[in-house]
Design a protein around this nucleic acid. Structure first.
Ligand code: ZN
Length: 443
DNA sequence: CGTGCCGGGCT
DNA sequence: AGCCCGGCACG
């Protein structure tokens, strides 16, 4: 979990919202706590939202917190901008030239819902004045590329509960926005026999499901059933990572821990992200851009795909002219389980982090070849009575040879995951993100 | 134990 | 088709 960035299914806490302040302007903040009047004590884990629910919003940048109710908040999962009246001076965000820019409202025509806004373009010194429609305007800054900002799928809730479990709790009702990213699956091979035809007799799986759904105890701050990844700690995720992008515009950049009362102890943790520099090799043949993690494989690539087969009289290291070596920030070598950085790390644009390092010719060739024969050790004595679950014993030994069909013998190439590290998953090639065979650093 | 990725589920 | 993840093999 050191690095997964996606917020797993989680409560509204942490959601970014905008709320009206005393001066009549909306300010952005984050939901810090939720108070429910608790008429339904049996099920208040994050699911029981009533009109009386109070949300404590802490405004950005400071100490100020205030309580609001549902209808007063603007943001994902709450009301939208429709019907809102924006005062002059209101800070807003809008997409201008494909980029999100900040702007201030000059005036707002309530009839037509058109606004004049003054854009502070990052480049130009002179503020630009624009006419915008209300729906083109946001009160919240979106961290995502504004273009992709609002896909609002509603799939999530379907994925949530397998089959029919309505009898478990008819009262569970939740705005779908907050269930996003939930992804559950029964144990890989035991539950997949159909809930296509259901009869009145519950099979084991259904029984288990019902049990789990009931197991949300009233006091647990978050539902921890399902082995939900989010149950580990606020903002935690498994080491197998995940993505930060889902429905909600921006994940909470803060990590707080909450007591049951909704009092938030907030420790601003900005862990000194130790990064290491990793080196990748990029093919500079025009139009190629192939990247790989080792010197030898980039040279192999160039040799094969661009230069032809090596001829006799040719200069030996011709490949070296067609690739460059570049540094890439990589994850700390020893990932801990304690990072809670689900949100995108501060460097917004990963590309800025990359630095081109000229390709000096260096004695890489000789350095990286391992000239040593590999010691072959044959495991004769199994010491594996040590600790194993008494239940079922897996026989891994039988006939697993690296050359067995289906599994390729893993090249010594560093793949995206290792090169960029878990916290730069967005730099991985698509296949790596999907846990598929890497396409960037091929063999 | 970390990594790579296959198989398979989900939307 | 794109995405995600369990689980397993490899090192
Ligand atoms: Zn890759």
């Amino acid at each position: 979990m050191s690095t997964g960035k996606r917020l797993a299914k989680r409560s509204i806490i942490g959601t970014r919202v905008a709320a009206l302040s005393d001066d009549g302007l909306y300010y952005s903040g984050m939901i810090q706590a939720v108070k429910t009047p608790a008429p339904f004590p049996e099920n208040n884990n994050c699911i029981n939202l009533t009109p009386n629910t109070r949300y404590t919003v802490r405004f950005d940048g400071g100490k100020v917190s205030r309580e609001y109710r549902d209808a007063e908040l603007i943001g994902p999962g709450f009301r939208g901008l429709a019907g809102v009246r924006l005062k002059p001076g209101q800070r807003v965000f809008l997409t201008y030239n494909g980029r999100e820019v900040r702007a201030d409202v000059l005036d707002h025509d309530h009839e037509t819902d058109e606004l004049r806004v003054q854009v502070h373009a990052p480049a130009a010194e002179v503020p630009i004045e624009l006419r915008k429609r209300l729906e083109e305007i946001r009160l919240l800054e979106s961290r995502k590329s504004a273009r992709l900002a609002d896909v609002d799928t509603d799939f999530a809730r379907l994925a949530d509960m397998a089959g029919d479990r309505r009898r478990a709790s008819a009262t569970i009702e939740v705005p779908a926005h907050h269930m996003q990213g939930s992804r559950k699956r029964g144990p890989s091979s035991s539950c997949d026999l159909g809930y296509g035809e259901r009869d009145d007799q519950m099979n084991e799986c259904n029984a288990a499901l019902v049990l789990m759904s009931l197991s949300c105890s009233p006091n647990s701050p978050r539902p921890s059933a399902w082995g939900d990844r989010s149950s580990v700690s606020p903002g935690a995720s498994s080491s197998s990572g995940s993505s930060w992008r889902s429905g909600t515009p921006s994940p909470p950049p803060v990590s707080s821990s909450f007591s049951d009362e909704g009092i938030a102890m907030d420790y601003e943790d900005k862990p000194p992200t130790k990064k290491r520099i990793n080196i990748v090799f990029e093919c500079t043949w025009r139009g190629c851009g192939y990247i790989t993690g080792s010197c030898s494989s980039i040279e192999a690539h160039i040799r094969q795909t661009h230069l032809g087969p090596k001829k006799e009289g040719e200069s030996d290291h011709e490949e070296e002219f067609y690739y460059t070596e570049r540094e890439v920030a990589a994850a700390a070598p020893a990932p801990t389980l304690s990072h809670r950085d689900m949100c995108r790390p501060p460097h917004e644009d990963p590309d800025y982090q990359r630095q081109l390092v000229g390709s000096y010719r260096q004695g890489l060739l000789s350095t990286m070849q391992n000239g040593s024969a590999r010691p072959i050790s044959i495991p004769v004595t199994h010491s594996w009575s040590t600790s194993h679950s008494p239940k079922h014993i897996k026989f891994t030994g039988a006939n697993s040879s690296p050359g067995s069909p289906g599994r390729r013998p893993r090249s010594d190439n560093k793949k995206c995951r290792k090169v960029y590290g878990m916290d730069q998953r967005d730099l991985w090639c698509t296949q790596c993100k999907w846990k598929k065979a890497c396409t960037r650093f091929g063999d």
